[in-house]
Design a protein around this nucleic acid. Structure first.
Lengths: 101, 101
DNA sequence: AAAATAATTCGATGATTGTCGAACTATCCG
DNA sequence: CGGATAGTTCGACAATCATCGAATTATTTT
């Protein structure tokens, strides 16, 4: 079974976070996760108009940037936003994203 | 004399803003401008470790993203952060950037 | 008028990125 | 067991990007 690597939040840098969030697809992912109120979603459950491989890629970028946390559960990869940690490290960031427009 | 084009804030999109701020050089520019407390700085006055052409490029990107406002004054290009407008469009964004780490 | 200053524009180059189909792996279910 | 499901990995490809030196423009200063 695959295990995912997540950076320690202390090592997460703002430019990398910005970079990860600069893609509309990825922003959409994070927003949908935020809307699900803490319940983890399978990659599959997130509505997204790209091929499977691309989808996987975007999740990987968000993961490497420290924004999401992923855990295998059977064949599904359940993922959620690292809400508390991010709020502490970058106060206001998630609120900014939630305020969709 | 050169005149600069600035997007209307209504048309400024979050992914583009994030993209602009995902480069360490540009983040440094914005932070220095924010520190100057509203006083406009010449491009030249901003401390930055890149060639002249690159510097010019980064200012252009920030301008196109709606983050800074530039105005020619003699040979200098005085620039400042579009603070009030940005605070209104993306509340919390600038605060996030100021909280340097 | 000439030199100095401030910044833009123009290629060019190498690196990174988003996208995809195809092949692959691992788990679940009938 | 054997198919279906959920994701990952691997090239490949086109597009975008950061960077630079050199040439250019416009203003200020001497």
């Amino acid at each position: 079974m695959k295990t995912y690597v997540h950076p320690v939040m202390r090592d997460v840098e703002l430019p990398a976070v910005m970079q990860a969030l600069s893609d509309p697809c990825r922003l959409a992912i994070v927003r949908q996760l935020l809307e699900s109120k803490g319940r983890a979603l399978a990659c599959n459950e997130v509505e997204l108009d790209v091929a499977k491989a691309t989808r996987s890629h975007h999740f990987e970028v968000l993961r490497a940037a420290g924004i999401i946390f992923t855990e295998m559960d059977g064949t599904k990869c359940m993922t959620s936003v690292r809400r508390a940690e991010l709020d502490k490290r970058f106060p206001g960031l998630l609120k900014l994203l939630s305020a969709a427009k």
